[in-house]
Design a protein around this nucleic acid. Structure first.
Lengths: 228, 228
DNA sequence: AAATAGATCGAACGACCGCTCTAACTATGG
DNA sequence: CCATAGTTAGAGCGGTCGTTCGATCTATTT
């Protein structure tokens, strides 16, 4: 008898997922076909269905892995720098990714979430856990006085999460914005939102270091001087 | 001979467009079928193709009318109240619409814009003109001292526009937010972003009244108190 | 009222979709 | 070195999609 090699299996499955993601990014969830995914992965349709039950399940798996990846990335950034810098880094990274590899599947996921229960649940669960992460950091910032204690941490966390999404829609709607001006505005938006009232001494964000897959981009600190 | 009645023609066309929008909202651009649109509009497929060349052209027409409507609504709100109140009203309205009639087609448009050149051009053109509108109001606010003169008006306008989008993604990702807390956070976000530095006197937004279906929304003026 | 051009219908076409099924192939355990 | 279970292929099935087309109906014009 022969045994199934779980390493090879997971490898193949991952390969199909990557191929599917490229196809979905190019044509959308509905627009991409099984045949295209098979061609991209270099396998036959019969074979694909040994790894996934339906096209829907591929979509769900993509949504899951994509969001899980974004979450772990955010968690990593929050560990290695302060909240505001981490948020800006994340937004900056989303922007770079968008320029290099196109819009990706995030917006498709958001659109699908309203119609596809599986995707909707995955998205809401993931969002909730990212919110919790952000809220914790917000609360600790409030305790140390760096963040306005008057803000409701949970609500602010949700708003900040949606702010990351908005950087994606901004890239699509207004693609020719000067990246420097854009970064500065985003930083001001976030900083002013979170800073304690009266602390109009603009906090200086240290060097924001983004390490990506293939990309390593770094944004210089922005120092905003205010009147006394 | 018989002549084509342009009134009846435009009426029918509009009816098809409305039916199509409902279908697209329910199933997405790819998911909705011509047959569904025909059923919803109460016509035959043969007849539909006397009004639109292809399904693509229906999608483009929907994108155009939807964005044009959003633009005129924003313009109207900006006329009848100050910038900050208008933005909050618009976001509030988007939120109410979302609760009542579902997510709509905005996210589908944003996702499609990256793949469909026609939709992309319509979206970018519309966004540019809304940005210009917002930027003008920003500049006049800067001139009168209500808005931070240090902000780059064009960039800030783009950021504000994407902020309206983000309220849509927020509704989808975190649907159970307390609307009151949410509104307050959004208001703080926008107010703090736009207020001149040092004007930490919390602005109070008067009652923001949004009336639903066919929607005539009016927002009361915001009184911004500045320190001397 | 006959003529005629636009309005409307619905069957049907060709292409393509997600998915299944059978059959061949291949590596491994005994 | 068979036997066997996992692997892979690809033709093709039933169905649906966007679109077309010929026919019928209807209102206007003269």
């Amino acid at each position: 008898m022969r045994k199934v090699d779980p390493v090879k299996y997971e490898e193949r499955r991952g390969g199909i997922l990557e191929a599917a993601e490229r196809c979905f990014a190019r044509h959308g969830f509905h627009g991409a076909t099984i045949a295209q995914i098979c061609a991209e992965a270099g396998i036959s349709p019969g074979h694909l269905y040994h790894y996934f039950e339906t096209k829907e399940s591929i979509i769900a798996a993509i949504a899951d892995s994509e969001l899980e990846y974004a979450k772990s990335r955010s968690a990593q950034m929050l560990e290695s720098s302060n909240l505001i810098a981490a948020l800006i880094s994340e937004i900056e990274l989303v922007n770079i990714r968008h320029k290099e590899t196109g819009p990706g599947v995030l917006l498709d996921m958001l659109a699908a979430a309203g119609r596809n229960a599986a995707v909707g649940n995955i998205l809401r669960e993931n969002s909730a856990s990212v919110c919790e992460l952000l809220a914790e950091h917000l609360r600790s910032g409030q305790a140390s006085g760096q963040i306005d204690a008057g803000l409701d941490a949970d609500t602010a966390a949700a708003v900040l999460l949606s702010l990351i999404d908005s950087s994606k829609t901004l890239s699509i709607r207004v693609p020719n914005l000067d990246p420097k001006k854009r970064s500065k505005a985003l930083e001001q938006l976030i900083t002013r939102f979170l800073s304690p009232p009266g602390a109009h001494a603009q906090t200086t964000v240290g060097s924001v270091i983004v390490e990506g897959d293939k990309t390593s981009a770094s944004a210089q600190a922005v120092t905003t001087q205010n009147s006394a």
